[in-house]
Design a protein around this nucleic acid. Structure first.
Lengths: 218, 218
DNA sequence: ATCAATGTAGAGCACTGCTCTCGTTCTGGT
DNA sequence: ACCAGAACGAGAGCAGTGCTCTACATTGAT
């Protein structure tokens, strides 16, 4: 720590620039979606020449991947901040509503996670724990007891018990219900409910209530 | 009918070229997704100079929209071809399985319909009947009787009864369950089940079985 | 003081969606 | 039968993209 004031070490400067790049990219995505993310525009925003950006992210996809991870974390944190009601039914409901609210507030980030994957893309393995962080609040709230009909799925994903200490058959059912929530939100964001259940508030509420019954929550 | 053989009217030629463009575009999308669709590449394939293609589709988005409509129709036809079992439960199951099978066979077309919408996009109103054609087989199979908890949604989408002659509260529940199926398929195609319920056959089967119970099908 | 790592700048490549202009070819109305 | 006008293809061109390569500057460790 020789230096004081504005003088920063090389490592620090790199970190800062990386953070500024990520922020500029996130703003761009929030405005017009992932497909509109331009490395050149980001570089301009940050005050770098276009080629310099590639010292920080070797490829556009790498930048996108970093943003995906960031969005995962943000969503996970949001769901984690949902108060732990005593009643599992209430906690499930609150978590499900928080999920939809976040998706509606950050539609492009939601699409970044659950939307169409990029063309050549294969799910990088480091997103698995991030996806688990999103699922955890739902598992904690919903996987109290086994749910009939999900035994075979439970056998397949038996390692779930080790990580989360939940009932496997309940966990499998929770996973299916999480897919249902994400499906409903995807349709809503995509405008697929126009002409039927739009706005989707009532449908979503009815769906969540049905899940509480199906999962045997009280 | 003066002309025989290869001589064709201008209108016919236009139709044929349009069809060839659509086909080449569909092939391109089936191979590498919508984001990889290049008007120039399509034009090359069809044997047109790049600018000539814009005589047929004024913009890349217009071409994409046409492809979306086509995919909608294909999926609708596929679901329509599912045999009408006597038992609603069996028909629901068969239709749901056909949906997943089609999605796995044509993942990019599925994403075209239900994936991330294009950036500036607003759902063109002419896709509404196409979306309805996809929902119809499910409504016919699943919306036999009212489902408790969906009354308020039913009130919202009362016009459904006029078009489809189904119970509104049953129809609303079916819509929610269709969203669940699409959500599960979206997660599967996106690789989100890796590490848990992958392959997703068992999970999907358990989900469908649960739906049959929830909807009160026999 | 030296030297390799790290960074920036800038030119350049191949590609994209799209526009404009130019000739040609066909069509409908008189 | 003619001819204006629409329809169409060819080609050049523009502004933008992701990304690479080379040349030069700065920094940190030796």
């Amino acid at each position: 720590m020789w230096h004081t004031g504005a003088v920063v070490s090389r490592a620090e400067a790199r970190e800062r620039t990386t953070a500024r790049i990520l922020e500029a990219a996130r703003v761009q995505i929030a405005e017009s979606g992932a497909s509109a993310l331009s490395t050149r525009a980001v570089a301009r925003e940050v005050g770098l020449v276009s080629s310099a950006l590639f010292r920080y992210f070797p490829t556009r996809d790498a930048l996108l991947t970093a943003l995906i991870a960031e969005s995962y974390r943000r969503l996970g944190d949001t769901l984690d901040a949902v108060p732990r009601h005593r009643s599992p039914a209430r906690r499930w409901t609150a978590t499900a509503l928080a999920l939809r609210a976040w998706a509606r507030e950050h539609p492009h980030e939601f699409q970044l996670i659950y939307g169409t994957p990029v063309p050549g893309y294969a799910a990088p393995p480091d997103t698995v724990p991030l996806a688990a962080a999103v699922a955890r609040p739902f598992l904690e709230a919903g996987a109290r007891e086994p749910v009939a009909g999900f035994e075979k799925v439970a056998a397949q994903m038996s390692e779930l018990r080790e990580v989360f200490d939940v009932d496997p058959a309940g966990g499998a059912a929770v996973l299916a219900e999480l897919a249902a929530l994400l499906g409903a939100i995807t349709l809503e964001l995509g405008g697929h409910f126009v002409g039927t259940a739009d706005p989707a508030d009532e449908l979503y509420a009815a769906l969540v209530a049905r899940q509480v019954r199906t999962l045997g929550l009280r």
